[in-house]
Design a protein around this nucleic acid. Structure first.
Length: 827
RNA sequence: GCGGGCGUGGCGGAACGGCAGACGCGCUGGACUUAGGAUCCAGUGGGGCAACUCGUGGAGGUUCAAAUCCUCUCGCCCGCACCA
């Protein structure tokens, strides 16, 4: 028996033992039902932070709990190892190659994860920067390319001047780079895109299948995809040609008083050519193009526009309509052109008022006549159509479909669905990423690298200079190559892939991490996928989670996987805060996991983080709270360690029927704890209340310990101890393993089955019920637990105190609630 | 502006529509000690000696009964933001 809880010694010893005995290695084939528990793999930024500790502590409880419940649990870990910080460090300090920097960080962080006692199968570890991994990132790109889902296009893209690379729309937050906060610029560049828009409808529709995802995340994705129904309408231009617009309000087409093109619209140049205002408009277009993303799209920006000098014809009423160019129309959305209906669109209204453009009412509420001159804002609500030719008098709701039908029949337009989602820009002008496996040949054009030539190796011998140019461009041996088709001289693509490409399939690779011939073994993917429980930060609600869903759907269509969604259940954990703010170096409120583990041990750190708050909520760090958890583990130690071998007492505890008094009570507490912890961990992921239930069990055991030994039942005590350790094992794996051995048990506690509760043991003979009069608690009485409602009612009414309190008031109603209370309504 | 979330003791947080505040922290008192910032025991929402009474951001409502359901409102946090 040891009298002190020496966490340092215990944790180090057991971590070593677990590795030696391979207890967390998962077999691919097993009689047990599969369970894939996955946490978002980290970027190896240096050291673990508390957010990681929280993420992985949650995952570890789930994995261990499911293992104890009899599942064959896949619980892997790896590294999202490509990315800018490694390269920036090389440029800034020059001393270390990004590969070295990354590998060093991985070593540090792996050691930290091991110190936390997390139950990963380390045999499956992957690092996305390893050629054996990024070969498959490139292969995935080629799969998309060969199926027309990867294409190169010149367009205005988001450019982060500080990161010296382009970004995907998803990586721009309020006009700034989500990584470094620099203001993002627009640049006209030729870049590689993935056709995620082809999957917009399915990505949206299948959100319905994701019952195990938080609504919040699904709503965010829904908004991001941004589906809207409407029509495309074609307006002939007087001097020839046409303008096509997208509108969600075809019912207002008779109210069009002008047309607006985005400044970047290709028609603009044609329309103004040779016209007197051409110079002014060119200047305006240039000004708008130079604006930052934020200034360009902000609702605050004043609406500015110019008349092109050209006119088109409204096809439904043959009216002549002027064509304008204005900054509030976005070239990327719809057709980049808008039919302006100032009476029924607030933006058009403001613009029309500013430039004194005509406003024509075509929808108004029944019985009301809207006066365009008197209107102070657009009327965007429902109503009856007016001034709308054959449609006048129709409800605008019906008008939407009627106008579409009318347009369609005359070849003037058609119904149309538009999405806000844009294609995924994956090119990055940076070195530390997976090279895009494409070759440019003067003769053959764009040539994909054949699968057998993969991986396209990232050269190691490059210079890192703060030029803003990718080092790959200056690496002659990399750039100059031979065309795989004709054998002639060719140049390699020097852009690398967005790291979200690397992380969009890693959960498949875990099933076959060392397979050199295929990205994965389909049989293994079939066996393990989809991921049963995915856990990570909500910051990936759109980015990683949307990309992964997209890639999974593509892979499913290509019959490379069977599942069409990757993650069945999703848990998004909250942030770890200190003093009400996110931990950050600049705020100086960072608590280092290393320090906490050194001072209190991994078990305490894990327990605190799980106890302090439910997982999806933000967690306020508290040094005193940590202290409390440390005290609790010491309390467990002092309770259990002195008992020594408890197996000697033999046998299982007596059935409840044979127990009385304190022994029966103790056994009930034990089984109630099993019930509560099983439900809290299994059904709701409320680890905080699960821990508090374990604390209550410990408190009850301390009480029980005060009972004279002659009155105690050794079997009851033994059961309580075993249950306590088993329930606590997923949370605090080291101390429970040590105490399991100290109390005489063979083998690892982590290989034991989760305890089941005996419903009979949880039943009390007598319970206290509350007596309410008019809803206020007035008395409590002890009654048999299985009392019938009628008996309850009678019993309560017989109480002297109750009679006194009622006095001469009239009893109107008596409501007995079995097991809880009786409410007497009097007047 | 639109969408989502959250408001409960001194603090973190508990409460299938049924005793508000489990559990932990902190605090108070006691025990054990040469000692206690260890440990164990007891107490701890406000007011009141008490019977009682007031209490879940605020105002209404539904109900025998509301932190919980409904309506309005205030405050904070997050996401999207000229998407036609």
């Amino acid at each position: 028996m040891k009298d002190r809880y020496e966490f340092k010694e215990i944790e180090a010893k057991l971590q070593q033992k677990w590795v030696q005995q391979d207890i967390y290695v998962v077999p691919d084939s097993s009689d047990r039902q599969k369970y894939y528990c996955l946490e978002m793999f980290p970027y190896p930024s240096g050291k673990l932070h508390m957010g990681h500790v929280r993420n992985y502590s949650i995952g570890d409880v789930v994995a261990r709990f499911k293992t104890m419940q009899g599942y064959n649990v896949l619980h892997p870990m790896g590294w999202d190892a490509f990315g800018l910080p490694a390269e920036n460090a090389a440029i800034k300090h020059g001393a270390m190659h990004p590969a070295q920097w990354t590998m060093d960080n991985i070593d540090t962080m792996r050691a930290q994860l091991k110190q936390l006692g997390l139950s990963y199968d380390w045999n499956r570890e992957v690092a996305t920067c390893h050629p054996g991994y990024y070969k498959w990132t490139q292969w995935l790109f080629l799969q998309l390319y060969h199926h027309g889902l990867a294409y190169k296009k010149k367009s205005a893209v988001n450019w982060c001047p500080s990161c010296a690379t382009v970004l995907a729309n998803e990586q721009v937050k309020e006009g700034s780079c989500e990584r470094c906060d620099s203001v993002v610029e627009k640049r006209e560049l030729e870049q590689w895109f993935l056709k995620i828009t082809d999957y917009a409808d399915r990505l949206l529709a299948d959100l319905k299948k994701l019952g195990g995802w938080p609504d919040k995340v699904k709503i965010m994705q829904e908004n991001w995809i941004g589906r809207s129904e409407g029509a495309e309408i074609t307006f002939p231009i007087i001097d020839g040609g046409t303008i096509t617009v997208f509108t969600t309000r075809p019912d207002t087409v008779y109210g069009v008083t002008y047309m607006v093109l985005a400044p970047e619209h290709p028609l603009v140049e044609k329309l103004i050519e040779g016209k007197p205002q051409a110079g002014k408009i060119r200047k305006f277009v240039q000004e708008v193009r130079n604006l930052s993303e934020l200034a360009r799209t902000s609702t605050e920006t004043e609406k500015v526009g110019l008349f092109t000098g050209a006119y088109c014809i409204n096809p439904v009423n043959d009216e002549i309509v002027p064509i304008l160019v204005a900054n509030y129309v976005l070239v990327e959305y719809g057709t980049g052109a808008v039919m302006a209906v100032p009476a029924h669109d607030q933006r058009d209204f403001e613009f029309a008022r500013k430039y004194s453009l005509p406003i024509r009412v075509v929808i108004q509420p029944e019985g009301v006549t809207l006066d365009p001159d008197a209107m102070t804002e657009a009327y965007e609500a429902e109503g009856l159509m007016v001034n709308s030719g054959p449609f006048s008098g129709m409800s605008n709701r019906r008008g939407i479909t009627a106008v579409i039908k009318y347009l369609q029949e005359r070849g003037l337009g058609e119904g149309r669905v538009n999405y806000r989602l844009r294609d995924w820009l994956i090119s990055r002008q940076r070195y530390w990423g997976a090279p895009i496996p494409i070759v440019y040949c003067d003769k053959c054009g764009v040539v994909p690298v054949p699968d057998e030539d993969l991986p396209v190796m990232l050269p190691m011998d490059v210079a890192f200079k703060p030029t803003g140019r990718s080092p790959l461009e200056d690496h002659a041996d990399f750039v100059n190559t031979i065309c795989p088709t004709c054998g002639g001289p060719a140049r390699r693509e020097t852009d690398t892939m967005d790291t979200f490409m690397c992380s969009s399939f890693y959960y498949y690779r875990y099933t076959s991490p060392r397979n050199e011939d295929n990205a994965w073994d389909l049989d293994k993917v079939r066996q393990w996928l989809p991921v049963d429980q995915y856990i990570g930060g909500v910051e990936h609600a759109i980015l990683h989670l949307l990309y992964s869903r997209f890639i999974t759907k593509v892979l499913c269509d290509l019959k490379l996987v069977d599942n069409d969604e990757p993650f069945t259940n999703l848990l998004t954990q909250g942030m770890v805060l200190k003093d009400g703010a996110k931990m950050s170096k600049s705020k100086g409120n960072v608590v280092s996991p290393e320090d906490i583990v050194a001072k209190y041990g991994a078990d305490t750190a894990r327990l605190f983080i799980l106890f302090a708050s439910p997982p999806e909520r933000d967690l306020e760090w508290s040094d005193q709270g940590v202290e409390g958890c440390y005290r609790f583990l010491n309390r467990v130690w002092r309770l259990v360690a002195p008992l020594g071998n408890i197996l000697a007492v033999g046998g299982t505890p007596d059935r409840t029927t044979n127990l009385v008094g304190v022994n029966k009570d103790m056994r009930r507490m034990t089984h109630l704890a099993i019930k509560k912890v099983t439900e809290d961990v299994g059904n709701r992921f409320n680890f905080n209340t699960a821990v508090s239930a374990i604390m209550e069990l410990v408190n009850a055991m301390y009480q029980y310990r005060e009972v004279p030994e002659c009155d105690r039942n050794a079997g009851v005590l033994r059961e309580a101890v075993e249950v306590l350790l088993l329930l606590l094992a997923p949370f605090a794996p080291h101390i429970t393993e040590e105490l399991w051995a100290l109390t005489g048990h063979e083998g690892s506690i982590h290989a034991r089955s989760w305890p089941e509760y005996d419903p009979e043991a949880t039943i009390e003979d007598e319970i206290t019920i509350v007596v309410q009069i008019n809803g206020r608690v007035r008395d409590r009485i002890l009654v048999p637990a299985d009392i019938k409602p009628d008996v309850m009612r009678e019993l309560v009414m017989q109480q002297e105190k109750v009679q006194e309190l009622i006095g001469d008031q009239k009893v109107i109603k008596v409501i007995p609630v079995p097991g809880k209370l009786v409410n007497i309504v009097v007047k």
